[in-house]
Amino acid sequence: MHRFANPARFLRLARLIQPWTAAAMFACFGVGLYLALVASPIDYLQRDTVRIMYIHVPAAWMAMQTYAVIAVASLVSIVWRHPLADVAARAAAPIGVAFTAICLITGSLWGKPTWGTWWVWDARLTSVLVLLFIYMGYMALWSAFDDRQRAARAAAVLALVGAVNLPIIKFSVDWWNTLHQPASILRRGGPTIDPSMLKPLAVMGLAYLFFFITVLLMRMRADLAAQRLEAAAERRVMAQEVPA
């Protein structure tokens, strides 16, 4: 396990793949936006508002996937004390906040013309709002401690506890009556979205995924550099305290 824990090895890998993930992100966003806004049909019932789906649904997927990444990294951090796991979990949190907030805002802008309301307190909408609060609590906990080790430990515990919300979000539409529709993609019997609408959705999903990878790598690199600078500053203080 610790063979991959070497930050220098990670940095070399990150610098190698980051240009490619960034290029893939820009390409997918270009193609995806064209398909979503121009080259896809309207829905028989929702007309043009279906175009909000192409930015809303991938945001919901990635909000949950980012949390899953944080939870797994937190498990690895607690059990195996892998030094990069904390870095990855911490770097992912603001990206998760972005996806969750985008999911909620675009969902609201979609709900008004289709359902007739900006917001309802049904199980799906409420559980995603709870996810946003868990993300914010997670980030607040990281900055509440001066000692990085203790902050990492506390944040990892919170991340694992909060993971119970993920299945609740996914199955809320099956367990309870909700205004939100049931699943269209990951369901028994296959997707219930026409192929002409599934394609832009898939491309936008890839664009969001490559955005996540690219920004995660950038934020991890920044955090590792900040740690190097901090360690150097500490060495300098210690060197000054030693009488010459």
Partner: peptide
């Protein structure tokens, strides 16, 4: 409340 089906007209 709309269902899970999406398709062109």
């Amino acid at each position: 409340k709309h269902d899970e089906n999406y398709m062109p007209p």
